[in-house]
Nucleic acid binder design. Structure first.
Lengths: 189, 189
DNA sequence: CGCGACGTTGATTTGCCTCAACGATTGTGG
DNA sequence: CCACAATCGTTGAGGCAAATCAACGTCGCG
């Protein structure tokens, strides 16, 4: 069932029952176990993923060999490698389940078909991408203005419940810090 | 004249002459002198800006008081504070001309009108935002994987002509480094 | 039970910043 | 058209935030 996705779309535009059916026909619904991958470095990423339940992480491997998480996918967020998706280039990223997940998968060709059958879907995705880009701009402010300690505290204050759900070392990776350093921040609070 | 903008749109979708006229009626064309501002911190940003000629920089003031450039606007790019634009919140940013510029201005309400009159424009902006977001993801890879020296060299190799056009200290600001450090990198090359 | 994954703690190192002083270049008013 | 002030880049000394490296504690799970 893709009810959460339909509900999300209807925050941006109304859908008839027929349209809901069409969407349902073009979206595949899957369940992921912890540590399952949706794609890996070198793959062509030809779909977008809507998280209905659980948590994904998108990361790449730095030159140093260390994993760098660039984004978490949580409830009601779309996540994908948009460079690979848009330009048909091999992805630099891995997209992996952090925990048990329910995901709606929208393949690129199915999306194109949706745009033809339901023009309103262009409006929906235009709005979604606009917000995603806005969020990326805001993130840049926090990442370039805050010290390591401040980034940690800002994130922990902004998403107190989420911080509980993921291992410390993933948070460190997302914030661009080492697990050791996070540990020291927590020690002398 | 907004010919460069119309040409850009037609890379993504075709336009009839009527449609071109409608667009022309909803876009304002302006010239900026060096150091002119399009908006400043605290302002509501209610427009998007398409650079037809020249170069803009978007920056904010860090807690330390130092300017941090988050983006350059160059030929054929849209630039704006999408958080302020989307959520009607005061902007954190300044948008300023680095040099003499020709800019096409699309106000938010005019954009909404365009979407009603020319639904294809949703497709155009959907595509533009998707690419902008893709670019933001890619930038994140470079910024979190490279050392200061590597960031400088990567940028200088990727945009050799652009590096010539802007003062060194703006490049430093964009890369999150100090002008002194850039200077030292260049010294021992 | 024992192993591997995760977190902690301390010692040491380092990449880049800060501060300060000094050239070079630009531009502007008298 | 020159003088002088900004503006921009350079160089060096010293400092600091966070990384690295290594060792150890602890928990959960097969």
């Amino acid at each position: 069932m893709i009810a959460p996705l339909l509900a999300h779309i209807q925050k941006y535009t109304s859908l008839t029952l027929d349209e809901q059916t069409i969407i349902e026909q073009n979206v595949k619904c899957i369940t992921l176990a912890k540590k399952d991958y949706l794609f890996s470095e070198g793959d062509l990423c030809n779909a977008q993923y809507f998280v209905m339940e659980g948590c994904l992480r998108m990361f790449f491997i730095k030159n140093s060999g260390v994993e760098q998480i660039v984004q978490f996918g949580i409830d009601n967020w779309w996540i994908s490698d948009y460079t690979s998706l848009t330009l048909n280039t091999p992805s630099l990223f891995y997209l992996q389940a952090v925990q048990l997940c329910k995901i709606a998968v929208l393949k690129k060709d199915k999306q194109d078909e949706l745009f033809l059958q339901i023009p309103k879907m262009e409006h929906y995705f235009r709005s979604i991408y606009q917000r995603a880009y806005a969020a990326a701009q805001t993130r840049q402010v926090y990442f370039s203005d805050l010290s390591g300690r401040e980034k940690y505290e800002h994130f922990a204050n902004s998403f107190p419940d989420f911080v509980q759900r993921i291992p410390q070392y993933m948070l460190a990776s997302y914030l661009g810090l080492t697990p050791e350093f996070i540990s020291k921040i927590r020690a002398k609070k």
